[in-house]
Every structure is written in C-alpha cells, then in structure tokens.
Lab assay of single mutants.
Amino acid sequence: GPGLTDLFKTEKAAVKKMAKAIMADPSKADDVYQKWADKGYTLTQLSDFLKSKTRGKYDRVYNGYMTYR
C-alpha cells in the first residue's frame, strides 16, 4: 500500500487545494475548517501542510483555523 510519505504528499496536496479555495472564496472557510477539525488536524500539522516558498502566503488560512478551533 501507499507509504506514509505518499500519504503525507496526498494530504498536503488536498490541504493546499482547500486553502486556495478559501483564499479564492472566504465563504468556504468554515466548511473547510470543519473538515480539517473532523480529521483532527493540529495547527502544527496544518503549518507543515501549508509550507510555501512564498512567506506568509497561507497565513490567513492558518490564522482562520486557529480562531475556528
């Protein structure tokens, strides 16, 4: 089956995709945050998933999740 690194890459891609969806349409934020909360994502995990070469690119999404939880 898929190894943990593959799983991480898949999760990371999914999280980034959802983060971009929030940035494009902030009204989606609560739905996405709820999904992440259901998956039990911690802020540390989210921070790892949303690492970007562009500093602060996903800060709004991260901060939103922090206040959501």
Rank of each mutant, 00 (worst) to 15 (best):
residue 23 M to S: 03
residue 42 T to R: 03
residue 35 K to G: 08
residue 59 D to V: 08
residue 29 A to N: 02
residue 68 Y to S: 03
residue 52 S to N: 05
residue 44 T to I: 12
residue 58 Y to E: 00
residue 46 L to P: 01
residue 29 A to L: 02
residue 53 K to G: 12
residue 30 D to R: 11
residue 27 S to I: 04
residue 24 A to W: 05
residue 63 N to K: 15
residue 66 M to P: 02
residue 17 K to E: 08
residue 16 K to H: 05
residue 55 R to Q: 14
residue 24 A to Q: 11
residue 47 S to R: 15
residue 11 E to T: 08
residue 22 I to E: 00
residue 69 R to V: 14
residue 38 D to P: 00
residue 48 D to M: 15
residue 51 K to I: 09
residue 32 V to F: 04
residue 5 T to G: 13
residue 25 D to I: 03
residue 15 V to I: 06
residue 3 G to Y: 06
residue 34 Q to Y: 05
residue 37 A to I: 12
residue 66 M to T: 06
residue 40 G to N: 07
residue 1 G to A: 12
residue 10 T to H: 11
residue 38 D to W: 07
residue 5 T to N: 13
residue 20 K to S: 08
residue 60 R to C: 13
residue 43 L to D: 05
residue 54 T to E: 11
residue 32 V to W: 02
residue 58 Y to R: 01
residue 29 A to M: 04
residue 54 T to W: 08
residue 28 K to G: 06
residue 44 T to C: 15
residue 4 L to G: 12
residue 47 S to N: 10
residue 9 K to H: 08
residue 1 G to W: 08
residue 50 L to N: 00
residue 8 F to W: 15
residue 11 E to R: 06
residue 20 K to Y: 06
residue 42 T to L: 03
residue 62 Y to S: 03
residue 15 V to E: 01
residue 11 E to A: 06
residue 5 T to E: 14
residue 11 E to P: 03
residue 15 V to T: 03
residue 23 M to L: 14
residue 39 K to R: 11
residue 13 A to E: 09
residue 12 K to E: 06
residue 5 T to K: 14
residue 7 L to T: 14
residue 33 Y to W: 03
residue 41 Y to G: 00
residue 34 Q to V: 05
residue 28 K to D: 03
residue 64 G to L: 03
residue 1 G to N: 13
residue 6 D to K: 08
residue 12 K to N: 04
residue 47 S to I: 08
residue 35 K to F: 13
residue 42 T to N: 05
residue 68 Y to L: 02
residue 3 G to H: 15
residue 23 M to W: 03
residue 16 K to F: 04
residue 65 Y to Q: 00
residue 22 I to A: 07
residue 56 G to A: 05
residue 56 G to W: 05
residue 47 S to G: 09
residue 13 A to W: 09
residue 61 V to N: 00
residue 61 V to K: 00
residue 45 Q to D: 09
residue 27 S to D: 08
residue 30 D to E: 11
residue 7 L to R: 12
residue 65 Y to A: 01
residue 59 D to K: 08
residue 9 K to R: 10
residue 32 V to N: 03
residue 2 P to W: 03
residue 24 A to F: 08
residue 54 T to S: 10
residue 64 G to H: 03
residue 20 K to E: 10
residue 10 T to R: 14
residue 46 L to S: 01
residue 45 Q to M: 13
residue 63 N to H: 13
residue 6 D to Y: 04
residue 57 K to V: 07
residue 18 M to V: 03
residue 62 Y to V: 15
residue 64 G to T: 02
residue 40 G to R: 05
residue 25 D to W: 04
residue 33 Y to A: 00
residue 62 Y to E: 04
residue 41 Y to Q: 00
residue 44 T to R: 14
residue 59 D to R: 12
residue 52 S to D: 12
residue 49 F to Y: 06
residue 43 L to P: 10
residue 58 Y to I: 02
residue 51 K to Q: 10
residue 58 Y to D: 01
residue 41 Y to T: 02
residue 59 D to M: 08
residue 33 Y to P: 00
residue 62 Y to H: 04
residue 51 K to Y: 08
residue 57 K to F: 10
residue 67 T to S: 13
residue 9 K to S: 06
residue 69 R to I: 14
residue 30 D to A: 13
residue 60 R to D: 13
residue 52 S to A: 05
residue 2 P to I: 10
residue 49 F to E: 01
residue 65 Y to H: 00
residue 45 Q to G: 03
residue 59 D to I: 09
residue 38 D to H: 09
residue 30 D to T: 10
residue 37 A to E: 06
residue 5 T to R: 13
residue 5 T to P: 09
residue 4 L to E: 12
residue 28 K to W: 05
residue 1 G to L: 11
residue 4 L to D: 13
residue 40 G to E: 04
residue 44 T to V: 12
residue 35 K to N: 10
residue 14 A to V: 09
residue 43 L to A: 07
residue 1 G to F: 10
residue 63 N to I: 14
residue 14 A to D: 07
